[in-house]
């Protein structure tokens, strides 16, 4: 009897809400390097969960495990009560995991609108092209990219590329949206816009898991925070709780960005 069957298909309500994503002991090694080690957490319906940690802590690797880019060396992943550990990337997307990459990956020879259309068209099975185009348009307007819709994606600025990443991921109609440092490099005003955008996405019923180094953004946005260091979960809880945790403080001390940079 595995952990998968104990919870069955039921979504067990907890004090924080209905569970949507649950990682159990996820691990990933690269040769001798344990990039992610025994990471467990629960993500609730409608929650905005932040994953923070110093550079090289394993955050992106964790996201790769969640979106199926890597197969974990150990551990299981449940989405909406279903064990999705063995699903390949495309099936995980269909199951409801949408992802924006830290290092932006636009399809360079497509227009911005086409880029988003790909997400809208294939994110869930059975989508029709005209409808997908329309939804892509709506998303471009929502993310402030409408003016650039017909530009080739390789003509965008990094900032616009980051928005495109988000728009494309949202276009797949995820139940959980995974964002990897989509606000890095934004000026404060722009970050505020991005924060509002993510809130809007959450308010439309999507649970959001985001990786971020900018602490004010984490403070404003996150319902709960998971702190990683050297591949492991160091602490989880509210922003206040984790920033008060001496282990978290010391993990951040030796790093150049510092906790409140």
């Amino acid at each position: 009897m595995t952990a998968a069957t104990t919870t069955g298909g039921a979504l067990s309500p907890t004090p924080q809400g209905v569970e949507v994503l649950r990682a159990e002991g996820l691990s990933k090694r690269f040769g001798g390097l344990k990039a992610v080690q025994d990471v467990s957490f629960t993500h609730h319906q409608g929650e905005i969960l932040a994953v923070i940690g110093p550079n090289g802590a394993g955050k992106t690797t964790l996201l790769n495990l969640l979106s199926g880019v890597y197969r974990p060396s150990a551990g299981r992943l449940h989405l909406g009560g279903r064990d999705v550990t063995d699903l390949p990337m495309e099936a995980r997307c269909h199951a409801g995991l949408g992802r924006a990459f830290q290092i932006v990956r636009p399809f360079p020879e497509m227009t911005v609108h086409e880029n988003v259309t790909v997400g809208a068209l294939f994110g869930k099975p059975g989508q029709r092209l005209p409808k997908a185009r329309e939804r892509a348009w709506a998303l471009l307007e929502r993310t402030g990219l409408a003016a650039h819709a017909d530009k080739a994606a390789h003509e965008l600025t990094l900032l616009q590329d980051k928005r495109l990443e988000v728009a494309r991921a949202v276009a797949t109609q995820p139940s959980v949206l995974l964002l990897d440092e989509v606000m890095a490099g934004l000026r404060p005003g722009e970050a505020q816009e991005a924060v509002a955008l993510v809130r809007g996405v959450r308010d439309s019923g999507v649970s959001v898991l985001f990786i971020e180094h900018i602490m004010p953004v984490v403070r404003d946005l996150a319902d709960r925070v998971v702190v990683m260091d050297q591949g492991q979960v160091l602490a989880q809880g509210t922003y206040r709780e984790v920033t008060a945790d001496p282990r978290v403080v010391s993990a951040y001390l030796g790093t150049e960005e510092g906790l409140h940079a």
Binding site: S67, G68, V69, P88, M89, E90, C93, H94, R99, F101, R105, F107, P108, E109, M110, E114, T117, V118, G119, L121, F122, G123, K124, L129, R168, A169, T172
Partner: peptide, 21 residues
């Protein structure tokens, strides 16, 4: 839709897969 699938796979196979292609 084939155009979108083919072009996405060509221009970034892994990205295309993560987007459900």
């Amino acid at each position: 839709r084939l155009h979108f699938a083919f072009a996405a796979i060509r221009q970034g196979e892994e990205t295309a897969r993560v987007l459900g292609v």
